[in-house]
């Protein structure tokens, strides 16, 4: 997962304000939070910054994978323990006999499900962060291998 600092290092660092931000650093922050688009940085599309732009685009691929709730899953770091599935308050409420009781989640479209040994995002529509705009971090908190992250915490 790229940090705002990683992105900043590759920006023109001129604080030209063309993107509407006061500094390149704040642009980097908003880029990761998906509040700004790379195209907003006009100078970056000049030929002299092409290499750097490509690097940033590569970094942002992870961010692109982030769901509407800011949830990012890195499957390579997931061991498939299912802690996130069982602790999810929505799963517990909607599927008390399944996920709430420790079994594989029985909802047809759960928020998360373990498939082929790693956690996959199925439907964030049910997530409290999406529906109620609650800042819930239960899934991330109980993942000791950092396979789950939230954009705003990066």
């Amino acid at each position: 997962m790229p940090s705002p600092m990683d992105i900043y290092k590759l920006l023109p660092k001129t604080n030209c304000k063309l993107c509407g931000e006061q500094t390149c650093m704040s642009f980097a922050f908003k880029l990761i939070k998906k509040e700004k688009k790379l195209e907003d940085c006009k100078p970056l599309f000049e030929p002299e910054f092409e290499e750097q732009r490509k690097k940033i685009e590569e970094m942002l691929k992870v961010v692109e994978k982030a769901t509407e709730t800011g949830l990012v899953v890195n499957e390579d770091l997931c061991i498939g323990c299912g802690n996130c599935i069982v602790v999810c308050p929505v799963h517990v409420y909607e599927d008390p006999e399944g996920a709430g009781s420790g079994f594989g989640v029985r909802l047809e479209n759960p928020i998360l499900r373990v498939e082929n040994g790693v956690v996959r995002v199925v439907d964030v529509g049910l997530c409290r962060r999406y529906k109620e705009k609650t800042i819930c971090v239960a899934c991330r908190e109980n993942c000791p291998t950092s396979a789950i992250a939230f954009l705003e915490e990066l």
Partner: peptide
Amino acid sequence: GDVVRHACRIGAG
């Protein structure tokens, strides 16, 4: 088929 649900990385593998 080739989709294993709920098993961890070790079991699915």
